[in-house]
Design a protein around this nucleic acid. Structure first.
Length: 102
DNA sequence: TGTATGACCCCAA
DNA sequence: GTTGGGGCCATAC
């Protein structure tokens, strides 16, 4: 589809995530209007520019952990960011029940 | 046009 | 808690 509207929608949703909270790809996709587009969100975020202001670090998978290898720079940056926002990681994972975006 | 891949999600054993 | 399989959509070659 490559719907730019959907793309902007995703950005809006991700940008709407309050600090100290995290949302899952499925959550963002569902809020975007496509509960099955979880994969699309990840793929889209991955293609985002490096100078993007989008807080993609607040988006995690359904397991409550980062979806990309910790060897990646983004992974460390995400953990650092979330940790700075008050999110406590547990063995590389976090409590969606506690930090999950409502 | 078709195949392969991916920062995913859900369910069952 | 871990592992395996199936399904979803979009992108890249």
């Amino acid at each position: 589809m490559s719907d730019p509207a959907l793309n902007e929608m995703i950005w809006q949703i991700v940008a709407s995530i309050p600090p100290g909270k995290v949302a899952t790809y499925g959550q963002v996709a569902a809020l975007a209007g496509c509960p099955n587009h979880a994969r699309y969100v990840g793929s889209t975020l991955k293609k985002l520019p490096k100078d993007t202001t989008l807080p993609w670090h607040r988006v995690v998978n359904a397991k409550g952990e980062s979806s990309f290898p910790k060897d990646s720079d983004g992974y460390k940056r995400q953990l650092a960011r979330l940790n700075d926002e008050g999110v406590s990681f547990r063995n590389g994972k976090l409590s969606l029940s506690q930090y999950g975006w409502v």
